[in-house]
Design a protein around this nucleic acid. Sequence first.
DNA 1: ATCATGGTATGATATTTATCATAACACTTG
DNA 2: CAAGTGTTATGATAAATATCATACCATGAT
Lengths: 227, 227
Amino acid sequence: MDPNCTCEKCELKSLFFQSVSEEELFNVCNNKKENEHKKGDLIIAEGSVIKDFIYLKSGLVKLYKTTRDHEQILKFAGPFDFVSILNIFSHNKHQYSVMALEDSVTCHVDFAEVRNMVLENGVFAHGLLQKMGQVSDSIIQESLQIRRHNLKGRVAIVLLYFANRVYEKDEFELPLSRKEIAEYIGKTTENVIRALSDFRKSNIIKIFGKVIEIIDKERLERLSKFG
Amino acid sequence: MDPNCTCEKCELKSLFFQSVSEEELFNVCNNKKENEHKKGDLIIAEGSVIKDFIYLKSGLVKLYKTTRDHEQILKFAGPFDFVSILNIFSHNKHQYSVMALEDSVTCHVDFAEVRNMVLENGVFAHGLLQKMGQVSDSIIQESLQIRRHNLKGRVAIVLLYFANRVYEKDEFELPLSRKEIAEYIGKTTENVIRALSDFRKSNIIKIFGKVIEIIDKERLERLSKFG
DNA sequence: ATCATGGTATGATATTTATCATAACACTTG
DNA sequence: CAAGTGTTATGATAAATATCATACCATGAT
């Protein structure tokens, strides 16, 4: 093995390359590129041509679409639910932008190579179909969930998402501005701030700037279900 | 060829079986089942086990999810944008229900057979990846589009969808109740009715029960963009 | 240091939408 | 036929949310 090739040790190898032969992996590995992104960097620009199969090795990103007057955030994603797969076989341009919410590392494999692997390796293709189903379903289900809740319920869902799914702690630094929360849940920035203030006044959370501490998780969970 | 096998003539053959060999097609064709559904029939029940790869040959359906107290409609779909693909590789149970909005015919192929074709036929697998990307993207984009409009804008979007995409006529019979429009756009039934009445009073549409005639399409289009 | 800028925060008000009530009508069922 | 049920429709009112205004604070640029 080439000493430059570290894919063997990649935590995500099993995600996409489980079924790939030594020879194929070697090939992918030597032609891949890894990019580092600082918090706030644009990783993928909506409308740009898709050249690579891109996946997230580490970090946290937001997926969003820019419209006339504002942005709509589709999904927050970490390494194990990364998302560029959705468009890659059906569009030649990226339909969404991706921005780093925390320092992130992406891995880029030439798309032609991935397509060849799909054409030649059925197990690999099947794995991609599975992953794609999971990703699209998570976006759709989350969107439906948010849509059936009011302002406070939606904000509660976001806080619990970061506490339970991303940081696995009840005190964490929000990697988002209030505006970005608003862009995700489809409400105004002011009302997101009001909801957070309301939670603070009701002793459900404490707020120190971007740091949130969840004090009464039960109540927050009730809000996320019935609010 | 078996005289019972009419897949050769199926209008949708190219959609899913473009790349499939004579032998494979023959096999699929003889093991397929076709089902007819009357308007209002449940075709797929959310939560039921996925056994078949199901696609729509003709008709019109709604895809929806049942929650605590009401239903949320995800998508209306005809033969060329059918949707059961989304879950089939990633879940063992259907995540959404499908109901016929008009008399419909579905074609059922055993899932194991489809999986085998994915594993053995890269071109077929690639075609499914493309189709799946299109379907998931259409759901996501439509959902975002609706979310950034107000009540009237949303209703206008629905009317134009049926006029332009489904019936290709400016006078058509809505295959939906007002309640179902509400479940799709995420507003109350009363307000959907009010929006329609409002369009009628403004001479944008005429209403004869379920039959809608669009009189001022330009104004409706403006509403669907800026409302 | 000063200035502009963006994020956070709060209040007052306007607008939008939901809820509740009622009624007419069509449709099914006993 | 009558009774019940669901759909369409409209009005009155309540609740949720958006909009506009203002302020404070931190940050980076000049």
